[in-house]
């Protein structure tokens, strides 16, 4: 059990977002260019396609103690590689359910679609994830050591 002091200090979740180069990363760039202000909790790793992100990386990130992991890709039908995000979607459905099955709150793993034109959406996704995960509290996985 965490002691009371720990509970009282402000919890600032650390969230990882894998962004595909063509849509989500560009959307994040646009959010920056548009100066949309958002919480500082999310860190982006650029991949060429959301389909490059294997479940192992998501599982590893959560097990390492990160409070949330997001995969952000092109909207269905818009994948630069025509079908990568559809494969991502299938995997994410299974992974999300599996994580929930072992007691990881579903909010801690998200797949979201952000186009290159959706700077505002990127910012909204960051805010929403930060809010939800802050409300959940620290990732319980780290208690398992």
């Amino acid at each position: 059990m965490p002691d009371i002091k720990e509970v009282q200090t402000e919890f600032k979740p650390k969230i990882l977002a894998f962004c595909c180069n063509w849509c989500a990363y560009a959307g994040a760039d646009l959010a920056g260019v548009s100066r949309f202000q958002m919480p500082t909790n999310v860190r982006v790793i650029r991949v060429m396609c959301s389909g490059r992100v294997p479940p192992e990386l998501v599982i590893r990130a959560l097990a390492n103690g990160l409070d949330g992991v997001m995969i952000l890709g092109c909207h269905p039908g818009d994948c630069h590689y025509s079908e990568g995000n559809y494969l991502t979607r299938r995997r994410a459905h299974v992974l999300k359910r599996l994580l929930s099955y072992i007691g990881i709150e579903p909010e801690r793993f998200q797949l979201r679609w952000v186009s290159a034109a959706e700077g505002a959406k990127f910012s909204a996704v960051v805010k929403e994830a930060t809010d939800k995960i802050t409300a959940l509290g620290p990732n319980r996985w780290v208690d398992k050591k």
Partner: peptide
């Protein structure tokens, strides 16, 4: 974008 490279980033962040 090797596993080694991506995993190293995840590990560094955490």
């Amino acid at each position: 974008f090797t596993d080694m490279q991506l995993l190293s980033m995840v590990n560094a962040l955490s």
